[in-house]
């Protein structure tokens, strides 16, 4: 299990390669990468991600442990950035490794749902019209009920 909270960019390709160099009984690796998306119609200049140092690492490790137990993961990686980011930049990635793909997919999906609503990150978007904190979506909170 590897949890990293960092300001620096990460090399998605290299991380995937390293993660997929798996032990013999691993049959499936699932990876997800989140990217700063331009907002509807108004050109996004910057996204600033704030987090709660200490609690962030604790929350992510807790989610990864839960996922590992529940889906018998062989390995799990979460990288999440903070600080100023531009559209197109990679914000975060999740990777899961399991014996079979169903477990690897479900665990990655679970981690993403929990990261959205239970990891202490907050996003502020700046465009030509000003800056605004991104509001949490009801859908994201509702998604947790799936698990």
């Amino acid at each position: 299990m590897d949890i990293r909270v960092q300001q620096a960019p990460f090399d998605f390709g290299a991380e995937c390669d390293r993660f997929a160099a798996v032990r013999g009984d691993t049959g499936a690796v699932v990876t997800f990468c989140g990217i700063v998306r331009d907002t509807d119609g108004q050109a996004l200049h910057r996204m600033e991600i704030e987090h709660y140092p200490g609690m962030t690492e604790k929350a992510l490790a807790g989610m990864a442990q839960t996922a590992t137990r529940r889906w018998n993961l062989h390995d799990c990686l979460i990288i999440h950035r903070y600080g100023p980011l531009r559209p197109g930049e990679r914000i975060m990635m999740v990777a899961t490794a399991a014996r079979h793909r169903a477990d690897a997919f479900a665990a990655a999906d679970f981690l993403m749902d929990y990261l959205k609503s239970r990891a202490p990150f907050w996003k502020k978007e700046s465009s030509a019209t000003g800056s605004e904190w991104v509001a949490a979506k009801d859908d994201d909170e509702a998604a947790l009920k799936r698990w």
């Binding site: 604790k58 975060m92 239970r118 990891a119 949490a136």
Partner: peptide
């Protein structure tokens, strides 16, 4: 102390209380 709680949580012995909006990770 870095665990999500309710407003009726007792804080005796706590060292750190944080207030923030609903989280938007991912």
């Amino acid at each position: 102390d870095q665990d999500l709680c309710d407003f009726d949580t007792a804080i005796e012995g706590a060292r750190e209380i944080a207030f923030f909006p609903p989280m938007t990770g991912g």
